[in-house]
Design a protein around this nucleic acid. Structure first.
Lengths: 339, 339
DNA sequence: CTGAAAGCGCTTACAG
DNA sequence: CTGAAAGCGCTTACAG
């Protein structure tokens, strides 16, 4: 492969001049510039970004840590990240962590060695030891779909507590009273507990009594979790008329359980999801759900990281993007009906 | 950030020795080695991979060109790629091309400058001008979910023609005679035309007459395409009893059209998809489909690229991974029924 | 405007 | 076993 020296030789100038036509073209006379450009073209010269990065201490490469790109939620978010990166001339190195600490550490070490300019950390809480690692590495970081109350790290997500509240309120407004929830795991303070807390706040606000032992089950956001959780829920609480699931996948899993049990959705039980991944509109019946601006979360997270890198003043510490209920076919308005 | 010089100073040795404990530890006396290791630990030293890459002309990073990571099919395939990369110590730079030539070219240029060791090109045919670009860049390439008959580029995919054949044969074995297909686009020789050709071969082999004008519609693999194609198909051919769609998403779109038209699946019309993305098992009714080993295609493509990089002899030029029909709830066996 | 030189952070023969 | 030196491919003051 041709290097800057080859181009210099062919064009009959010094390597400094080659560098100048690439980085500050108008510092070079037109005649030489064109000669150089021709040589570059002729040799199919591509500047070596490693050499450049070594000098500038910038690589225009960003790191993304994501639990699992084959998860639809992250796939959509990642698309937003990549678009933002591409738009501003960055490349992305991505790593799936499966929420595994060792995998994350080794990915981060590898990214550090490759001199990425900064990274986005997705979906997991920032535990103290994670924070120590971030600090040691000394690279800018932005959180996507998670946040930290303890540490001053910029984050982009929806207001999960409010989303949980709005979900319950929506079902209540549709006339439901005996409402259950399939929540995320206890161990997930972000998308797990916050949504549940919002949900319970709405129940309290509406003075509906609510026995969490009978009305809440837990799952890890996946389809199978939703199916199993619905089964447990139904066994202890067959009077419920509406369900809120903390993810679309769990909502679909729950619907499948109900379907197999001969319980009609939404006639007998209404189901409300959360996320609005594309499956929500491709399933049957089409899922009513609390939509997250998934793509935008990814896009905004990378934009925020870029702002940090540009050093253009401190970015907003906590950005909350709006969620919104998308009405489709799985929630029935039962106002006026007699039970 | 600490450099090799800082470590050398702290440990009281030369930088050569630091380099040796990192790359060939047993060439260094135990005593010095431990002193160095302690200094590395103390300074939180991370070697700079740019400097290393500049010398070795290897970066241990791979490029992936994919049409759209938010597409479920690619998301699953990409997971396989990333796992293979990680397993063998590579990182991945990914770029979404949207099948746009300019985007692809600029991504490739950028990856070239960053000195990736090789790349995987996904899903699109290798047009002559693409081949020229690959050649100019001079980087090893492997094709995933596409192939080239003209050029000697290693590829990994299913046998699409045979998959189309097997799909039709399966429906025929289930007793269907009036079968239609929603194919991929005319312009897609790989997943579009091959599957259709296989489908038509099966019809001929079984001596079923087949009017392609009445029995085939086209779409771009997406849900909405499937819906629209099914509508056109039904308008001109309401006698059909079975449908094969060239993607799961189109199958689901078709099912939604049938559902809205009051046509029951599979009682009145059977539907067979292709891909077996996770939506196939999360939709209702659960979709019977021709499963591609999606994850494995991605995994194997990266493995093949790594073999090329290792220079361990020429890899298999064309790898076909097995497909298989996954029976669920959308295809009815009508043998013995009277029409 | 242009070129020679120093330097980015490493690795790798080459002496000793 | 260990260190000094050259070099990977660039950029950037510094002279001229």
């Amino acid at each position: 492969m041709a290097t800057i020296k080859d181009v210099a030789k062919l064009a009959g100038v010094s390597i400094s001049t080659i560098s100048r036509v690439l980085n500050a073209p108008d510092k070079v006379t037109k005649e030489k510039r064109e000669r150089v450009l021709r040589a570059i073209e002729q040799l199919k010269y591509h500047p070596n970004a490693l050499a450049r990065g070594l000098i500038h201490k910038k690589t225009k490469t960003l790191g993304i840590l994501i639990p699992d790109i084959s998860n639809y939620y992250y796939a959509e978010m990642f698309r937003g990240m990549e678009d933002a990166a591409q738009e501003f001339g960055h490349n992305i190195i991505i790593c799936n962590t499966d929420k595994d600490k060792q995998r994350m550490i080794s990915a981060l070490r590898s990214m550090k060695e490759k001199q990425i300019d900064g990274f986005v950390f997705t979906s997991e809480p920032v535990y103290p030891d994670y924070y120590d690692i971030f600090n040691q590495l000394g690279m800018p970081v932005v959180l996507a779909s998670t946040q930290s109350l303890e540490y001053a790290i910029p984050s982009v997500k929806i207001d999960d507590e409010q989303a949980g509240f709005d979900a319950a309120q929506y079902l209540i407004d549709c006339g439901h009273r005996r409402i259950a929830m399939i929540s995320g795991p206890h161990l997930d303070p972000i998308a797990g507990m916050s949504r549940l807390q919002g949900f319970m706040r709405a129940m309290r606000t509406n003075e509906l009594d609510f026995d969490s032992a009978r009305c809440v089950e837990f799952g890890n956001y996946r389809y199978d979790d939703g199916y199993a959780a619905m089964e447990r829920l139904w066994n202890k609480n067959p009077e419920l008329t509406a369900l809120f699931a903390a993810s679309d996948e769990m909502a679909l899993g729950a619907i499948y359980f109900l379907y197999r049990s001969g319980i009609r959705v939404p006639d007998q039980v209404s189901v409300l999801g959360l996320d609005n991944t594309r499956i929500a509109s491709m399933s049957l019946p089409r899922l009513t759900t609390v939509a997250q601006p998934i793509y935008e979360i990814g896009y905004k997270a990378v934009r925020t990281l870029q702002e940090v890198l540009d050093g253009a003043g401190p970015p907003t510490l906590r950005t909350y993007l709006p969620h919104q209920i998308v009405t489709r076919d799985t929630v029935k308005n039962v106002n006026g009906e007699i039970f």
